[in-house]
């Protein structure tokens, strides 16, 4: 395989003979072929990633007939503002309500879930107690259970206590985040020195107070990462709201768009609404992602390494 990359080889013997005192810079001269191949693969991947999004960008500016009649990757008139106005007015202005619901489910669910996960992760990392690893094993097992496999049993459970079709039937299940506990344990073990906790204890702070004043503060960045990951996963959840909710005023954007999409045979204009509504529903997450990019990378680093 090394023969595929010949230019790096000839330089090796000489550099071994005269060993540099400091490590040479990582920049290595590469063949134009290698560079071209590399750029080519990256360009193809980039194009593939952008293709559907570009189509969507053109589509949201079109009228319904042009959605079918014009080239999908070229503009055809500019009706974005009219489309947005129609979207927000459709079915008595239910779309902004769906957006707000999504923000509520994702924001409150991730907020509640992250605090619970950080408290549990901190406890697993910083205290010894009987049965700790057994309990922790149970949490990790929770990571492996597929979420949608529990949706139907969850529906049956909630309907047993007459709580289906309520905010709680979505909010409470999505707040439970075992993967967050796993991450929080890793963060707590890595970012909170035991000496600091001991100092707080010597100063007479109780254990709970120590957590809120010392532990939580030091785990802040990790907690933000857990919050963001959970926010996205709740925002993306479709199966649970579909199973639980029947009142359209409680719908998430995804569920609402799904019902519109299922009604295009009765009213073809719903297609235009679904297209524009899809684009609008992506915007809040994109803003969140672009403004907080480095926290994502951090989360990925911690989650992937251990």
């Amino acid at each position: 395989m090394t023969t595929l990359n010949p230019p790096a080889r000839p330089s090796a013997p000489s550099s071994r003979a005269v060993r540099p005192a400091r490590p040479a810079p990582r920049r290595v001269r590469h063949s134009p072929l290698g560079r071209g191949l590399n750029l080519g693969v990256c360009a193809v991947a980039g194009l593939y990633t952008l293709l559907p999004l570009v189509w969507l960008l053109f589509a949201i500016t079109k009228t319904l007939p042009d959605l079918y009649g014009s080239n999908g990757f070229a503009p055809s008139g500019f009706h974005l503002w009219a489309n947005l106005r129609d979207l927000f007015a459709q079915d008595g202005g239910v779309y902004p309500r769906w957006l707000l619901n999504s923000v509520l489910y994702a924001g409150a669910g991730a907020g509640l879930g992250t605090l619970a996960s950080v408290m549990a992760g901190y406890t697993f990392a910083k205290y010894r107690f009987p049965g700790r690893e057994k309990l922790y094993g149970l949490v990790v097992a929770g990571v492996l259970v597929p979420g949608t496999a529990l949706a139907v049993p969850l529906y049956l459970l909630f309907s047993g206590v007459h709580l289906t079709n309520t905010v709680w039937s979505v909010l409470i299940p999505v707040a439970a985040n075992p993967f967050g506990v796993y991450l929080a344990r890793v963060y707590a073990a890595g970012s909170i020195p035991d000496e600091l906790l001991e100092a707080a204890r010597v100063d007479g702070a109780g254990e709970l107070r120590t957590f809120f004043t010392v532990g939580l503060r030091l785990m802040g960045p990790g907690a933000l990462t857990i919050f963001l990951m959970q926010f996205v996963s709740i925002w993306n959840n479709f199966f649970l709201p579909l199973v639980m909710l029947t009142d359209s005023r409680l719908f998430t954007t995804s569920l609402g768009l799904f019902t519109w999409n299922s009604s295009t045979s009765q009213n073809p204009d719903y297609l235009r609404m679904v297209v524009v509504g899809s684009a609008v529903s992506v915007v809040p997450l994109l803003i969140l992602f672009l403004t907080l990019q480095r926290w994502w990378r951090r989360g990925l680093a911690e989650g992937g390494l251990r």
Partner: peptide, 12 residues
């Protein structure tokens, strides 16, 4: 650029 689709909900 590569991460963009991760922020598009699965249904969308």
């Amino acid at each position: 650029l590569l991460l963009l689709p991760h922020f598009v909900p699965g249904l969308i």
